[in-house]
Structures are given as structure tokens and as C-alpha cells.
Amino acid sequence: MLLLLALFTWPAFAVEPREMLTDPALEARAREIGRTLRCVVCQNQAIDDSSAEVAHDMRRAVRERLVAGDSDAAVYEFMVARYGDYVLLKPPFKAGTLLLWLGGPLVLLIAGAALLVAARRRRAVPIPATEPLSAEEQRRLDALLGR
């Protein structure tokens, strides 16, 4: 594994002509899948973008599965069975990733709800059309601004 890093000529070529499928529809699916599978020896690179040996092997495996008639879901399953959830650049939605997927929307909902409640409460208070600065405020502001 260590030596692989040394051999790893980055960033040379990723998907190469000789590994591409002749059927354009299948090849397009393979590219789509390849963009969402992580190269397991690289740092945050998809197998399609990596020139590592194992990324090449994984791209080939994806194409073999597709040629054998697998659905996209079956190809993902194949990879997850061998490399774990780690291989998916888009983590699956399950118990362990609930917080990951729902965290953002949750922040939005809670903060949004809190703001709405606050706004409602405030609506009870009539808002004066204008709020001129009091003489004291004006003086303070002038002083602060060094005027």
C-alpha cells in the first residue's frame, strides 16, 4: 500500500481508451458510476479521476458487471460488499448517516421555526412608523464617530 503511493503518478490519466466499453450507453453508465465510487487508496478522488492501479481495476470491475447485465444498484452492491460503504462518495441513507443527511435541513427547520415564533411574538408589539434618534442617541453617535 505504501509503495503504491510512490508509484502513484498523480495526476496522470484516469479513464483510458483501452478500458472503455464499445457500447456507448453502457460506457456512459460506467462513467456515471465511476464518478460516484471512491478510489480506495486516494484522497477524496473518484475512481474515474484516479490513475491508481486499484482504481483502474475497480473501473474494469464496474464495466464487467455492467456487461454481465447488472443494474447500477447491483454494481454499487458489488462494490460495497468488497470495499464497504467507504467506497461510496455519496453515503447511503441509513441509521449511521441519519444525522449527516438530515443535519442541514434540521438546522434550517429549527432556526427557521425559532425565527418565525420570534417574529410572531414581535408582531404583537406595534411598530412605530419612524423611530427618530433621541437627542441622547444622536449625541452618543456623534461622539463615537468623533464628530
Binding site: R35, T36, R38, N44, A46, G84, D85, Y86, V87, L88, L89, K90, P91, G96, T97, L99, L100, G103, G104, V107, L108, A111
Partner: peptide
């Protein structure tokens, strides 16, 4: 919310690994 999403996505693999030992990747499709 956008910043929180990025923060959560960036750190989640670390949190999950420490708590459960499960390795996940959070990449562009997420």
C-alpha cells in the same frame, strides 16, 4: 445552513469512525 452542511459533511466521517468504527466517504455527490 450552507456552512453547517459543509461542516457536517466534512467532519462526519471522522465522527462516525470514532463513535462506531464505520468508515464512510462524503464526496461531491453528497
Amino acid at each position: 445552513t450552507l456552512a453547517a452542511t459543509v461542516l457536517l459533511g466534512t467532519l462526519y466521517p471522522l465522527f462516525l469512525d470514532l463513535v462506531t468504527g464505520n468508515k464512510v466517504s462524503v464526496g461531491p455527490p453528497f
